[in-house]
């Protein structure tokens, strides 16, 4: 293992987050067993007070997870000098089998956290906490995910030995290689771009419908998930080659480097925010019929859908701008 401060910080954070969620889970079990809003007993009072503690704990835990996702990628990027064959984060994540799963778990946790916090905020708006059982049940389900993430990350860092010769983006994101990354890379640019634009138009249209008519929240969320996936495919298959101005370079991490104007952050941050907000819309939407929440659902749903739409539009505009302003011309080859 490498005794590197950033690695120590990441391990520390996941350990503390597991601890925080552990406390929250213990309490969640108590709520599921004893919660009775109509009761005025001492125990109910204690439970109600504890919900504040849990909200705070969870907000911090997920905020920490979000920062740790960024730190994880940034750290992988900066460690690329320490491994033979690594030129960017891809190479460092490839050093052992645990790298990619850790990253995917961190991304999953980011979205899960966004969803849970939205649900929690919504529930706190209703005077009778109508969703309390659901949200604490979810919390208990999130616990294993957090533990798994901490375990994967620990394994990844413990088995990070600097004498491994790793393979980097040049071979992983190459159309001739095998595996998911290669499959994505080999997607024909035309198909990738069609999927990208169609899903983009669909998700924005659905968002506008929700904004105007207040219905179709779930469909909007589902479309956003599809658009998110297709956007990642398009970034790997088409957009990043345009940013690198190199038709064979498909790496989704090298665009995070300063040499490319940190284009990656400009693309990924709006995309992730848009998707997270869209998921939150899907979580908020279905509770319109609960009397104590209907007003909150309306207000919050509108806020979230505006955020999501804004971010999606920003993301699509930026992507198009990168392709349009690139010096790479693929007319006649790709189109």
């Amino acid at each position: 293992m490498l005794l590197n401060p950033a690695i120590m910080a990441l391990i520390l954070v996941s350990a503390v987050v597991v601890l925080m969620l552990g406390m929250a889970t213990v309490f969640a079990v108590q709520v599921l067993r004893h919660w009775d809003i109509s009761s005025g007993s001492e125990q109910q009072l204690i439970l109600e007070r504890r919900t504040y503690l849990i909200s705070t704990l969870m907000s911090w835990a997920f905020a920490a997870e979000l920062v740790s996702l960024l730190l994880f990628i940034y750290n992988a990027e900066s460690m690329s000098g320490q491994f033979v064959g690594a030129m960017c984060a891809t190479g460092v994540l490839n050093v052992n089998a645990w790298g990619w799963p850790t990253l995917f778990m961190k991304i999953t946790l980011f979205f899960t956290g966004a969803v849970w916090l939205t649900l929690n905020a919504l529930d706190n708006q209703g005077y009778d906490y109508p969703l309390i059982r659901l949200k604490y049940l979810l919390l208990i389900l999130i616990m294993p995910v957090v533990m798994l993430e901490a375990y994967l990350q620990l394994q990844y860092f413990l088995q990070l030995s600097p004498d491994v010769i790793t393979s980097c983006c040049g071979s992983l994101f190459s159309a001739n290689a095998e595996g998911v990354a290669a499959e994505v890379t080999a997607v024909s640019p035309a198909i990738a771009m069609w999927g990208f634009y169609v899903s983009g138009v669909a998700v924005i249209a659905m968002g506008v419908i929700y904004l105007l008519k207040n219905q179709g929240a779930t469909l909007f969320s589902l479309l956003a998930i599809v658009a998110f996936g297709l956007a990642l495919v398009a970034i790997i298959s088409v957009i990043s080659p345009y940013i690198y101005e190199h038709p064979q370079h498909h790496c989704p991490f090298c665009i995070l480097k300063s040499g490319h104007g940190f284009a990656g952050y400009l693309l990924y941050i709006p995309l992730f925010l848009a998707t997270a907000a869209a998921l939150a819309v899907g979580v908020v939407g279905p509770w319109q019929h609960i009397e104590s929440l209907s007003m909150a659902v309306k207000v919050r749903g509108q806020q979230l859908v505006r955020l999501s739409l804004g971010m999606f539009i920003l993301f699509y505009l930026l992507s198009v701008a990168y392709v349009a302003s690139s010096n790479l011309v693929m007319q006649g080859v790709w189109w």
Binding site: P5, A6, A9, L12, V16, W60, L70, L71, Y74
Partner: peptide, 17 residues
């Protein structure tokens, strides 16, 4: 930036928790 972020995790995060 990485250093500042790491430092933040070593000081502010423990304090908050």
């Amino acid at each position: 930036g990485l250093q500042v972020a790491t430092l933040f995790f070593f000081t502010v995060f423990p304090y908050v928790v």
